[in-house]
Simulated assay, not measured.
Amino acid sequence: MPRIAIIETGLVAPQHRERHGSYPQMFERMIRASHPAIAFDVISIPSGQACPDPDKTEAILITGSAAGVYDERDWIAQLEEFVRAAYASKTPMVGICFGHQLIAQALGGLVRKSEKGWGIGRHVYRIVPGNGVIEGEHIALACSHQDQVIEAPAHARTILSSDFTPHAGLLYANGVTLSVQPHPEFDVDYAYACCELRERRAPESVVRAAKASLAEPLDSARLGGAIARFLATGSA
């Protein structure tokens, strides 16, 4: 099984870190639930670590972040170069939320802050049949974002969508690159905490509805298992 390099691009808020762990720790729990033998390396961008050599990396997972992919930060440009090199070398790669947007932007898509506002709480996404990654017609997942992929890259196929997030999941033509906007690594408690973090930033009615939505079950394990299989096997 491959060793997965988790590229940490953002930090969990200090008041939630002790209970929920870091984003890499959330992903490790998610992946080990179905593939307990997989090993991980964490590359922490906020700690000043540089991207690894994509030619010497077996599999890649890029986390979420409070940053916008369009922010003028040196590390974002460097990470885009890393993504393009990994894509060209056909290294299995998955991006979540910020990672989803970063891969899309690096490979020719358009990302910006959506006029639809905040997407938080439990959202339900349509699944494109026969995509080779995730089965079923719909999937319910936690999300927390304002930015969206507005235009997918030409060589990416949209496999998850909703009216709120038309390009919620992308599968790329090289067969080993996958990205999703929602968060399969979030449990219900952390998804609720994310809603609380949006208080006074998102409209009160949006936050209230998002909190209430989390009374319904999430399908996090289903997508988490699909991502684990994708990274472990290196293809859809």
Score class of each variant (00 low, 15 high):
51 C>P: 13
98 F>Y: 14
49 Q>H: 12
55 D>E: 13
160 L>R: 04
81 E>R: 12
109 G>E: 05
43 I>F: 15
106 A>I: 04
118 W>Y: 14
170 L>I: 03
145 H>S: 09
130 G>C: 06
92 P>V: 03
129 P>K: 01
58 E>G: 07
78 Q>S: 14
165 T>M: 03
141 L>D: 07
131 N>M: 11
103 I>F: 02
156 A>G: 09
59 A>I: 13
89 S>D: 00
172 Y>I: 00
32 R>G: 08
128 V>W: 03
43 I>V: 15
138 H>I: 11
54 P>A: 09
31 I>P: 12
75 W>S: 01
99 G>T: 02
111 V>D: 02
137 E>Q: 14
40 F>R: 12
39 A>F: 01
98 F>H: 07
157 R>W: 06
30 M>C: 15
156 A>P: 06
64 G>R: 01
110 L>E: 14
43 I>L: 13
81 E>K: 08
49 Q>K: 07
73 R>V: 03
46 P>Y: 08
139 I>N: 06
83 V>D: 05
120 I>Y: 01
167 H>G: 02
152 A>I: 10
85 A>N: 09
91 T>W: 00
60 I>F: 05
104 A>Q: 06
69 V>Y: 10
110 L>T: 15
83 V>R: 05
170 L>Y: 04
156 A>L: 07
121 G>N: 10
167 H>W: 02
141 L>Q: 04
163 D>R: 13
82 F>I: 00
137 E>A: 13
159 I>D: 05
173 A>K: 03
130 G>R: 06
132 G>I: 09
116 K>T: 12
77 A>N: 10
171 L>K: 09
87 Y>L: 00
156 A>T: 05
86 A>P: 03
121 G>P: 08
118 W>L: 00
